[in-house]
Amino acid sequence: MPETLDNPEVPVPEELKGQVKITTLDRIYNWGRRSSVWPMMFGLACCGIEMIAAAASRYDLARFGMEIMRPSPRQTDLIIVSGTVTKKMLPQIIRLYNQMPEPKYVVAMGACACGGGPFKEGYSVVSGIDKFLPVDVYIPGCPPTPQALLHGLITLQKKIDKQSIRKVKWYQKHESREVPVPLLGPDLIDPRDFPELEECEPSES
C-alpha cells in the first residue's frame, strides 16, 4: 500500500505498524478503484492505435492497473473515446456507455473526440463526444502520444482520488438516467431535441 493511504494523525502502536493501517473509507475505496480502472477495448480510429501502443510494453499501461481491456462494456469502468465520432457510430457508442456499470468514466482521446478535430466540418462527424456523454478528461492531440494518454489517465486517477463515497452519483437515491440514444434520420436526431424539433418550422440546414 502506498504511504499516502495512511492517516498519520491516528497513532498506531509501534508493534502493529507492519500489520495495521488506519485510513479513511473514501481513501481506501478510491485507492481500490483508481488502481484497477479497466478500460473498454474500444478503438474508433487512429487514436485507437496509440491506445494499443500505450498498452504495449514501451508505455505499459499495466503500471496503472489498466492493462485489462475488456471488449464487453459490462466489465469496464472507463470508455476511452479514441477517435472520430461519426453520426453513424454514435448510437452504438451511447448504447455501449449505457451498458457500462457505475462507476464509469469517459475519456475523450484526441482532437476528434474532444471537438471534432480535423474532421469537424464533416456532414457525418459529431463535433465532440461531450455533446452526448459526460467527459471526465480531455486529451488533446492528433493523435495524442501514448505519453499524453498516460498523463490523461493519471489525471483521471487524481479525479477519482477526490471523489467521496457520500456524494458520488451512483450511490444517490434517484436512479441514474441513461443517455437517450440518438436516431439516424435524414441527419442525426437527438431525442433531447424532440420538443424543439416539433416546435420549429423545419428549414433547410
Binding site: K120, G185, D190, D193, F194, E196, P202, E204
Partner: peptide, 19 residues
C-alpha cells in the same frame, strides 16, 4: 438552429417518421 452540425430537409417532420 440546433447547434449540432446537422441539417434536415425542408419537408422533414417528426410526425409519422420511422427510422
Amino acid at each position: 438552429q440546433y447547434r449540432k452540425n446537422v441539417s434536415y430537409p425542408s419537408e422533414f417532420t417528426l410526425d409519422g417518421w420511422v427510422p
